[in-house]
Amino acid sequence: MSVMIIEHLHKSFGGLSAVLDFNAYLEEQELIGLIGPNGAGKTTVFNLITGVYKPDEGTIRFAGQNITGLPPYEICSRGIARTFQNIRLFKDLTVLDNVRIALHKDVQYPLLSAVFRSPGFFKGEADIRKEADEFLEIFNLADKRDEIASNLPYGEQRRLEIARALATHPRLLILDEPAAGMNPQETAELMELIRSIRQQFNLTILLIEHDMSLVMGVCERIYVLDYGQIIAEGSPEEIRNNKRVIEAYLGEEVS
């Protein structure tokens, strides 16, 4: 069953079409790649899905419901979480707090309970702490929990971003260039990690990536975007041999 169906999505900025008649579907627990040359509109698609931008036209259906035009926090609470191309952690807060903020949407005690410090508050806080620690454990960040996020090395910041996204309990995880700036070894570890969290949390994962070895290595299906339009769709094998894709990446003259 398709967990997400996107139909005729359109977005333009000041007369310039960034995304043009974008159609896609994501199957439950699929790992899909979205690739394309720079400026093809990949991040715009992510921003449309997660509610940062409102689409001009088209619908986005998620888990059977129309989520087009909902505010970002609402879309997040329906089960879509993301990371950012340029890391956007709460950089002056601790690693632990970064994850705990993501857990807030499922907070178990009411506001007044916090103000009056009722037993429910202490129980709720303990649960949040326990769960946050579990996420940090998975991403090997547990012993850094009290560090300020911006003091982490780059690769760990990327991992923390994924941990934070997962803490919102998504069904669909959207990763915007998760391997950007990583060395091959880190990239390989990341691929392993992405596979394993998909298993563990029954996730559907959509990712943008420039690192072709990563995309071809982990993705089951790939969409190729150029000038805001999908020019190809298929398995890694099919994409590798698709003529239009090669043209888009290398330019007409080569073919």
């Binding site: 926090y73 609470s77 709460f90 950089k91 807030h104």
Partner: peptide, 22 residues
Amino acid sequence: SSYGRAIISVREDEVAAELMGV
């Protein structure tokens, strides 16, 4: 409290906070 962390997340990065469900 968790509510306080949500409040602080607004100060830290409003867009990221919103996308994390706040």
